[in-house]
Design a protein around this nucleic acid. Structure first.
Lengths: 139, 139
DNA sequence: GTACATGCAAATGCTTTGCCCGCGA
DNA sequence: TCGCGGGCAAAGCATTTGCATGTAC
């Protein structure tokens, strides 16, 4: 049983085949799949799934804070089950999304919110650019 | 003549009444108006404007990098003509958007991109939270 | 005059929802 | 059994677009 599945059961959700498939897709994904992608992948496990169920399930998980919804300046949403605080770099050429963490950035953002007199409940940092081939960064 | 208008003329765009109205709305706005809002405001200056023209003009200005498009986790886009690098704090209770700048943050983001081996072409930082009434931040 | 701009309405594309049947607990 | 969950198709909504007309230059 996946970790997500356990959380859903604990929350009192009925564990159907469709939900199990979707949860497994999310748990396995190391990218940030769109609804369509989640749909296609989960359909391989349970061909009876409809895209309406994927939408409903993803929204449900979103409300339960088990998945996070992103938009990355596209015309469709993307989802991820990685709940650890992190940020994203989007390659504007390929659409590839790279996750990164940075404690100095965390701290600065907290400081800024505090200085502004705000309670921070969420944050979004997205860097857009190109992979730089002559840089040692991806070596 | 507004600054935006001059830039559009320089770029070879025909300066119609509708465009003048939309440009003026953008130039005057100190908030981050939605398409609908830009439409309503510009309609007051030129009642013949259709929302299709607003969409077309806003997209055009976006491509020309004269306005920036945001989504702020809503179901519609918002626009702003403020081209200086800045970030946003969104009050999750009121939807109010506060702009801020921070050089330390700028520097950190540049450093991160560099370390990752990326060329930075755009960045988005959005902090979500509540105005904290017992904090001196907004005094 | 000519190419570009606009209004209108239809079309799109993503997402949501009503309805009724099916199934998990 | 009973009510939640799901499939299907229709509806919603923001946005885009085809087409014919209008207009800036």
């Amino acid at each position: 049983m996946t970790e997500l599945e356990q959380k859903c059961i604990d929350a009192g959700l009925k564990m159907t085949g469709q939900r199990r498939a979707i949860l497994e897709v999310l748990e396995r994904a190391d990218d940030h799949p769109s609804v369509e992608t989640v749909y296609l992948r989960s359909k391989e496990m349970d061909s009876s799934i409809s895209i309406a169920t994927v939408y409903r399930t993803l929204n449900l998980l979103g409300q339960m804070n088990l998945v996070k919804k992103h938009d990355f300046n596209e015309n469709h949403a993307r989802f991820e089950a990685n709940l650890e605080q992190h940020y994203h770099f989007i390659d504007v050429n390929t659409g590839e999304v790279v996750e990164f963490k940075d404690e100095e950035l965390d701290a600065r953002l907290r400081q800024i919110a505090n200085d502004l007199g705000f309670d921070l409940v969420d944050r979004r940092v997205e860097l857009y650019g190109h992979k730089n081939p002559d840089n040692e960064g991806d070596s």
